[in-house]
Design a protein around this nucleic acid. Structure first.
Lengths: 332, 332
DNA sequence: TTGTATGCGTTATCAT
DNA sequence: ATGATAACGCATACAA
């Protein structure tokens, strides 16, 4: 890699002159600037990013800690984060906690040594279940800003970008009740232990309560037996006329199982799930989804964090990103 | 952030003594070491990563450039990359080209300023279609190692980790012919313009050729009309008794359409697609998949690149990661 | 055993 | 208009 020193030597001028010339300082003559720029171009000089970072004590890098990236929600959030970061000349260092508390702790610890200016994170499943968040407070105490999205820790004061989990499921359930006159609505879930899962279930329950209908939650543990459990439930409860899934998997499976058991979708059973871009493509009939604006969540998180980084005394903010009910063909 | 200088001042000793003490140098007395370590612990001292990088001229950071991360294949590769990088004390900076040549160029350019020790990348769709790869050669010429995986440029000499695209599809097709006695096998695809797509199609064609059967390739352009096009094809070609999909979407859709048209899967029509962890979960009956070891591709890429970084004159290598045919219920 | 000096590449301040 | 010097935080060769 070419350095200022090399350029200076070749041109027989000082390093500081070269530096100023490249930064188009008014102190430098047009002629010298031209000579410097020409050689820099020729040797493909690029200022060393690490040296700049050391000098300015700013990395223009954001640490992004995700529980997983195989879940399309987090993948799409990452997409938004990357896009907005790039637009603002920030790099992102990505760590995956794999839903593990320990790996989450390690990642935060490891990047809290000047590697990043701030963090964007969604809390690992294990951290939420064990209600452990000291490691996150530690980072914030050390004056590195943290922004949490989607899965947040209420007790920690920091910027947050969250989804309208309660309201979106309430609305979807109400839709099934009022517009479709459904009476036996099942909720299926495999994320009931997450903060977002709890909120979504409550939204469903409140909607049924308000309509004086009975609720029923099918908590699906191991992902292996989801098909079987839904199938058995539908056999046992033939009156079921609608299903709400609060994740991006079990809704599609519910459609498949309803068809398998001989029900017509949506005539006999309506299905609404959570989902993203490609979810609807994979079911027949197309599933109706509560579409989380995952990309937007990513971009807004970056914007908010950068605001925080740029302003001296920044007021903490919590942004709620509304979801959108996208009807497919699995509802009437 | 606490620095060596601060520790030195507080302890009334020199910076270098502190540095050596923290690095457990034999030159330093046990007593001094203890005092230094205690204070460092107390003030939560962490060596500044940026300064270390400048000093050693190594970043221990890998630039990872992916076409997209919403495709589960790349998401899972990223998972493998992150895991292996972390295990080896490397960070990863992630850039998404969004399948765009221009963004790919920009990302490489931007990180070629000392930000990373090397790159792991899969080429953007546009770069492959336009056969443009000068920007990649430039990086390699500037002595930054590049490793390409999955979608590679044959003309560029660098480390590569690829999939047995031709062979895996040949084998799957042969399976349908020999074990299941299928005679009218359709191939569906929406990635025919990619290097990997071409190889997979050739594998299919060769298998049919060897069996003296006729081949038929349904190239699906716009993702919107995939359902419709497969449906129409099946109506027009009722003899179709097997379908091979070379991506992770159209196979599931093919199953849905086969069922919709009244065919039984797998009795009337067998379906084999590409896929990963959750793909099989989303279809009923479970789709048979050619399982690319995406996670392994990620880990092997990191290992190979790190080897390259650590050895002075490293011999370029190409690793082929074999796929695995995982039968679901969509074949007999 | 401890301390001093130097340099990594850049930029800002202060001479000349 | 140009150059010398210092500094960011760390590590190491060399003195003491």
């Amino acid at each position: 890699m070419t350095t200022l020193k090399e350029l200076a030597k070749l041109l027989n001028i000082s390093v500081s002159t070269v530096s100023k010339a490249l930064n188009d300082s008014h102190e430098i003559s047009a002629n010298t600037k031209r000579r410097v720029l020409e050689l820099a171009e020729k040797l493909n000089y690029k200022p060393n990013r690490i040296a700049q970072q050391l000098k300015t004590n700013k990395t223009r890098t954001i640490g992004v800690i995700l529980p997983t990236v195989t879940n399309p929600f987090f993948a799409e959030v990452l997409h938004g984060v990357e896009t907005c970061a790039t637009d603002n000349d920030y790099d992102i260092i990505v760590c995956l906690s794999d839903e593990s508390l320990e790996k989450e702790e390690r990642s935060l610890e490891l990047l809290s040594n000047g590697s990043v200016d701030g963090f964007i994170m969604a809390v690992a499943r294990e951290s939420q279940v064990k209600e452990h968040s000291q490691h996150i407070s530690d980072v914030i105490d050390s004056k590195i800003p943290v922004l949490m999205f989607d899965r947040v820790v209420n007790e920690i004061l920091c910027d947050k970008v969250i989804v309208d989990d309660f309201q979106s499921v309430y609305d979807a359930t109400e839709y099934l009740i009022k517009k479709e006159n459904r009476k036996h609505i099942l909720l299926v879930s495999n994320i009931e232990e997450l903060s977002v899962g709890k909120l979504r279930i409550r939204g469903y329950q409140k909607a049924l309560e308000d309509a004086k209908l009975q609720s029923d939650v099918l908590k699906l543990g191991n992902v292996e037996h989801v098909e079987e459990e839904i199938f058995k439930y539908l056999q046992k409860h033939p009156k079921t006329d609608a299903i709400v899934s609060i994740d991006h998997i079990t809704g599609i499976i519910a459609i498949n199982m309803a068809k398998k058991i001989g029900k017509k979708v949506p005539q006999d059973i309506s299905v609404i799930g959570f989902g993203y871009e490609h979810t609807q493509l994979l079911s027949s009939p197309k599933i109706s989804i509560i579409h989380q604006k995952a990309f937007d969540i990513g971009t807004m998180s970056v914007k908010l964090l950068i605001d925080h980084l740029n302003s001296e005394d920044h007021e903490l903010e919590t942004i709620v990103v509304p979801s959108e009910l996208k009807l497919g063909e699995s509802t009437k």
